[in-house]
Design a protein around this nucleic acid. Structure first.
Length: 467
RNA sequence: GUCCCCAUCGUCUAGCCUGGUCCAGGACACCGGCCUUUCACGCCGGCGACACCGGUUCAAAUCCGGUUGGGGACGCCA
């Protein structure tokens, strides 16, 4: 029947942070779930703080997360004539009025009210003065003085505000630019938004916006207020409190699907399921299972989700994701097929692509210098003949495969009576420079015979001289 | 200060609407064990919560009221 239309409307006064991504994701998921439309709108009416570079950054972050939009990005700054038209309409109806109270005055009156222990709201001074427009006049919305404004929130349920609690808000500033609460309503009406999903910090704005809808004679959309994302100290996530930009997470080696998975599960659930593909998220996501209480952002869990998502990814795709991180540590343009073979040996051991690149290093570079403690323990003069023997047998291995290598080591252990650890660790050091690494046999198999042999020989000379 | 929202393990949550199946389930983290060529993964086990008080009821995590606690909002910011 009627198409579901949601929107995300960031203001470009900073980059897209986790809280914004959370809101964007919920809106996107609802639009996709109901096969509706997702609209992107840039709320840039604050000329002072809005910056074009932030628009670029936000779009970049949205694209990375895979939150594609069907319409927009619209910009409020380009829609001024539309807002003005609606302002005139309200003025003509007597639902708005001019006000010449000056900001400094207003501020004083607010502070005085607060000092008296009252709610610091506008006193309605100009409401009945019938002022004409002038150079220093703003336009205020004339809200109802009695009664109750209520709505059924799609997440929180019934919410009601006494109209007495609300004051007449400015809808058009002296500089001729509409304020947020007004522009949003006009936009949401003209863009035919059907569900407004946003943070619960907007709950106090909602009754005001509803009144504007009503004054404009527009049909009300559904409102859904999501619980806020809190920082570890349980405060609102803000820059000061470590709210991080989405792009930071990309830098740190998180997969976009991990962030989406984690963010979706914060404030929503689908039984006991923790790991979701994008398709599953779209399939299952509705507001019915949205939760009502604020959630603390937990990076430990994000890390775990990321490791799970990495493991679930096809090797070739993971290899592609890893490549830029390899480049960062000096491994340029590696052969994709080779990376794809290495990646499955690493994915169970890493939480981020940054970690994985580091762990993959030995596949591409000289493993030296050897980890000091390990070398001291395993690359000793006594180990040299063992390495010698491993090399000899490897060289004459008829078929170079993981199974054959496995057999080779087990035979050697059985024949020499050596414990596998004492056999494997020197070789591991020789090949990776570390005492901890992926399985030895898979490493040898991936590295290939010539490279393996050469590394072992290098280690033999090292071990021989290590007394 | 006023208004609004929220309240289950340290954290994310299931259960709550439609009371009994819940001396509360899952996940992260933490601890122990198993597996094992190392480190991980994985598997098994442990730790650990219905904020409090009162009411309704044969029966309350679930319904009602209050208290406390937490969060948010009170701009010619968004």
């Amino acid at each position: 029947m009627s198409e579901v239309r949601t929107r995300f409307s960031p203001s470009p006064t900073g980059s897209l942070h986790l809280g914004g991504a959370h809101t964007a994701l919920f809106n996107w998921l609802i639009a996709r779930h109901f096969q509706g439309a997702f609209v992107l709108r840039i709320e840039d009416t604050d000329k002072e703080r809005s910056k074009e570079e932030f628009v670029t950054e936000i779009l970049d972050a949205m694209g990375w997360l895979g939150l594609n939009w069907d319409e927009g990005p619209y910009r409020q700054s380009e829609r001024l004539p539309i807002y003005l038209e609606y302002i005139d309409h309200l003025l003509a109806k007597g639902a708005a009025y001019y006000c010449d109270c000056q900001p400094e005055d207003l501020k004083m009156r607010r502070e005085a009210a607060l000092a008296r222990g009252e709610k610091p709201k506008y006193d309605g001074r100009c409401r009945h003065r019938n002022l004409k427009p002038g150079p220093r006049t703003a336009v205020r919305f004339k809200g109802p003085e009695t009664g109750v404004t209520r709505w059924h929130d799609l997440i929180k349920g019934h919410i009601a505000f006494d109209n007495q609690e609300l004051d007449d808000l400015v809808i058009l500033r002296t500089d001729g630019i509409p304020t947020y609460n007004f522009a949003v309503v006009v936009d949401d009406i003209t863009m035919r938004i059907t569900q407004i999903i946003r943070g619960e910090d907007h709950i106090p704005n909602t009754p005001r916006q509803i009144q504007i809808y009503e004054a404009l004679g527009a049909e009300l959309p559904g409102f859904a207020h999501m619980p806020l994302m809190l920082s570890t100290d349980r405060g609102k996530l803000s820059k000061r409190r470590g709210a991080k930009s989405v792009l930071d997470y990309r830098e740190r080696g998180f997969l976009p699907q991990s962030l989406c998975n984690y963010l979706a599960r914060l404030g929503w659930s689908h039984g006991d399921q923790e790991i979701f593909t994008r398709e599953e998220l779209i399939q299952y996501f509705t507001l019915e299972h949205a939760t009502t209480s604020p959630g603390v952002f937990d990076e430990e869990k994000l890390l775990w989700v990321n490791s799970q998502q990495m493991k679930a990814m096809p090797p070739a795709a993971l290899a592609r994701e890893l490549t830029p991180f390899l480049a960062r540590i000096g491994i340029e343009a590696p052969e994709q097929e080779y990376v794809a073979r290495a990646v499955p040996t690493l994915s169970a051991r890493c939480h981020t692509l940054v970690e994985m690149a580091e762990a993959a290093r030995f596949y591409f570079q000289d493993p030296r210098p050897y980890e000091e403690k390990g070398a001291k323990k395993f690359l000793t003069a006594e180990a040299a003949p063992i390495l010698q023997e491993v090399a000899r047998r490897l060289e004459s291995l008829p078929e170079f495969s993981e199974a054959a290598i496995n057999q080779l080591f087990h035979d050697l252990a059985a024949e020499t009576g050596l414990k596998m650890v004492n056999l494997a660790q020197p070789v591991r050091l020789a090949l990776t420079g570390r005492t901890a690494s992926p399985g030895l046999f898979e490493i040898i198999n991936i590295l290939g015979s010539p490279e393996t042999l050469q590394r072992i020989k290098t280690a033999i000379s090292f071990a021989a001289g290590n007394t």
